[in-house]
Each structure stands twice: as structure tokens, then as C-alpha cells.
Amino acid sequence: MELDLGFFVQQFLTGLATASTLFLLAVGLSLIFGALGIVNFAHGSFYMLGAYLLYWVARGDPEGLWWGMAVVVAIGLVLGALVERIFLRPVYPRPEHHQILLTYALLLVIEDGVKILFGSAYKSLGPPSALAMPVWILGAPFPAYYLVQILLAAAVAVLLWLFLKRTRVGLWIRAVTQDREMLEALGVPVPRLLTGVFALGIALAVLGGAATLPMQTVSPGVAVEAVISAFIVVVVGGLGSIWGSLLGAFLIGEIQAFGVMIWPEFSIAFVYLLMAVVLLVRPWGLLGRPPVVRT
């Protein structure tokens, strides 16, 4: 194998594009776990639903991508808020396994719902014409749409950071992960805050799924693949940490991109190897918090 800079950069950017999708998917899972304490097994289902919704909203027209994504994100926000109010709110006081069963039920319902509405066949939507041609980077061709995905994820990361760090609601979200009861006793409308966090997490998953449609086909099976990937990202990065999701997504995206070069048949094994090492050395994830013993 010849070490060629153009090829190296191409692989790196491909890894970044994968990482971008993983980040949008995992960051919501992490945010929801941090604030609500719920492990959302249906997270990948909302991601898959995002791709289907975009397919439906754009009506097969690749030029409908931009406004289509905006509509799909809006649907994701409303859907997330409704699911939290109707299904999740009653189970907060219940034992954890009830919550897991509930989100697992949502996974099944969404999967069958999608089959009823869209059928089991693969659906696809090409990139818009302006992005259909590859760009040439250091002599190597690179899909222009990947750059859009990378920019989108970078923009989401920056905006999310500003939101959490600079706004009052962001401050409340950081506080609610630490002590929900105390925050409520200080007059903060915690129930509405949790609805908002869940809606935001779902909207991000939906956006992540929709954003892959111009490059990848979607089928009902995408949901389970996606939620497994999301769990790997948060296990590596640390559940509950935004930066952990970013780092986990980056590492896994790049390991996949370069693993293919080293040992194509087993590139996925490198990802699980990384997860195993992290679980052995830092079970709470690279940027997660070790469990605190309360005094």
C-alpha cells in the first residue's frame, strides 16, 4: 500500500463524515440520559424515522433536501415532546427496567409503523444537483455532500455548546443532570424542561437520519444498527457528556475509515476492540464521570 497524502486526507474526511452522523445520533441519546436518566432504546428508531420523513416530505425530489430537513426537524421536535409527555412522564418514578421496556416498545412500534406506512423496501433520495459532483481534494475525489454533513455536525456541536454554556435554559439543563429535585425547589419548571430536552434529543436524531438519506438508502433495519452504533459511541465517549459523544463519534468514524485500509474484512472489529478497551480501562467512558459515592 502506497502512502499517498491525497488518499490519506480522503479517508480522514470519509471518517469525519461517518463521525458527523454518529455525533448527531449519539449526542441526543447522551443528552436525554443526562437530563431524564432514561436510556432511550428507541433513539435509533427516530433516526431511521428521520430518513423516512425526509423521503416523504421531499417526494423524491433531491432539490427538496434543504427545506425538507427543516420540516423534518420541526416534526421531530413535536414528536419528541408528545412522546415525552404521553409515554415517558408517567414512568419517571418507576423502576429503571420499566423505562427500558417502554423505550424498547417504542422501537418496535416505530419499526412496524414504518413498515405499514412505507413498506419494507429500501428508500433513497439522491443528493441535490449542486452537490452531485465530487470535489477534488489533493487529487482525490470526495463526495461534496460529505462536506455538508461535516459542516452540519460541526454547526450543531458549536450551537449546542453555546446553548448549554451561555443560556439560562442551558444552565438549567446542566443543573438538572446533577439534582433534579433541588432545581425544581428553586422554582425552575423542571417538567417542561425535561420535555424540551427530550424533544431536542429526538430532533437531533431525526436530523442525523435525514441527513444520511442523500448518501445511503434507508430501511426499517437501520433503526437497530443505529441504536447499537449510538450506544458504542456513548460507551466510548461517556454517557451524559456532549464532548464525550463528539470524541467517541470521531474515534469510531476514523477507526472505521482507516480500519478498512488495514484489514478490510474486519474493520468493524477495531471498533468493538476500542469499546472493549475503554470498558476495561475507563468503564465510565473517556470523558464521562466516574460514579460518585454520595456522602
Partner: peptide
């Protein structure tokens, strides 16, 4: 609780319950 707090009840807990990461 949050409505009661908004109506003017100020609660100072025994365990202090400072948000440790803020």
C-alpha cells in the same frame, strides 16, 4: 414544588445540595 417556589416559598435544604459541577 416549582410552582410553590414561584409563589414565594424559599427552601434551603439541610444537605445544602449545591450543584457540584456548576
Amino acid at each position: 414544588a416549582y410552582r410553590r417556589a414561584q409563589l414565594g416559598i424559599g427552601y434551603v435544604p439541610e444537605e445544602r445540595r449545591i450543584f457540584p459541577e456548576l
